[in-house]
């Protein structure tokens, strides 16, 4: 899974594999190891893309699926 912008700085990583069957499980796994990051990922304005498509709410994840957490976009 991928983190961008300030989320990556906060976590201290930008890209790593994580095993989870759906988005809720992924969020729970991340929050369990880093509570502050879990909170930041759930904050308003943070969007989630699954295989480069924005999703709202829950999504099932298969092996090899790319999940990205996107903080508010700043424009160029």
């Amino acid at each position: 899974m991928l983190l961008f912008g300030r989320l990556a700085d906060q976590a201290g990583w930008r890209d790593r594999p994580i095993e989870a069957g759906d988005l809720s499980a992924l969020r729970a796994a991340l929050a369990a190891e880093d509570a502050a990051l879990g909170e930041a990922l759930a904050a308003p304005g943070v969007q989630v893309a699954v295989d480069k498509v924005l999703v709202r709410g829950e999504a099932a994840l298969a092996a090899g699926t790319e999940v990205a957490f996107l903080p508010p976009m700043s424009g160029g």
Binding site: F4, G5, R6, L70, P71, M73, S74, G75, G76
Partner: peptide
């Protein structure tokens, strides 16, 4: 659009 909404993160 590019200045306000495009998917970039600026530092």
């Amino acid at each position: 659009y590019l200045k306000s909404r495009a998917p970039f993160w600026k530092k």
